[in-house]
């Protein structure tokens, strides 16, 4: 195992950024009760993985991966970029679906706070009734 020297840490700065971003996103998802904030946290979390892929595909001094006449041209690895394009599409779809669900939840329950939703669901369980528009928190 290599020693955790200053150079070792600096040379891998992209990984540290990814880890920080990922843990921030994960923390937001777990700790926030507001559903929209959860979705934002989820986005951060996914973006960190995108950055991991993209930074791994970068070659120092490399240009965009486009064929030129120069056979010695150094270019970045295009495959991770393509993969992440797909993953971004998946991420956008997830966010869209999550937000659509939040709208429906707001319409039905009148709240998007997790603790209030739990209380409304508990009342629904015992009384079988949803709160009316006036009774909503």
């Amino acid at each position: 195992m290599e020693d955790l020297t200053f150079d070792f840490i600096i040379a891998r700065y992209n990984y540290w950024l990814v880890i920080t971003l990922m843990m921030t996103g994960f923390y937001v998802v777990v700790s926030r009760g507001n559903l929209i904030k959860k979705i934002v946290g989820l986005n951060l979390f996914q973006t960190s993985v995108f950055m991991l892929y993209i930074s791994a595909g970068k070659i120092i001094g490399g240009t965009a991966p486009i064929f030129t006449d120069n056979p010695d041209e150094v270019y970045s690895n295009p495959l991770p970029h393509v993969l992440i394009l797909t993953a971004i599409v998946v991420g956008v779809a997830t966010t869209a679906l999550g937000l659509a669900l939040i709208i429906r939840i707001k319409e039905t329950f009148g709240s998007i706070e997790e603790d209030e939703l739990l209380k409304i669901e508990h009342d629904y369980d015992t009384t079988g009734k949803m709160p009316t528009a006036e009774g909503r928190p």
């Binding site: 959860k38 989820l42 993985v49 999550g98 669900l101 429906r104 669901e121």
Partner: peptide
């Protein structure tokens, strides 16, 4: 049952975390 909405949302959050972990492992 309106609780389908909140359970779908929770499923979405957990499923996405799972998928993201998976894709991180692949990376």
């Amino acid at each position: 049952d309106p609780r389908a909405l909140t359970s779908a949302f929770n499923y979405l959050v957990m499923g996405t975390i799972g998928a993201t972990f998976f894709v991180l492992g692949l990376g």
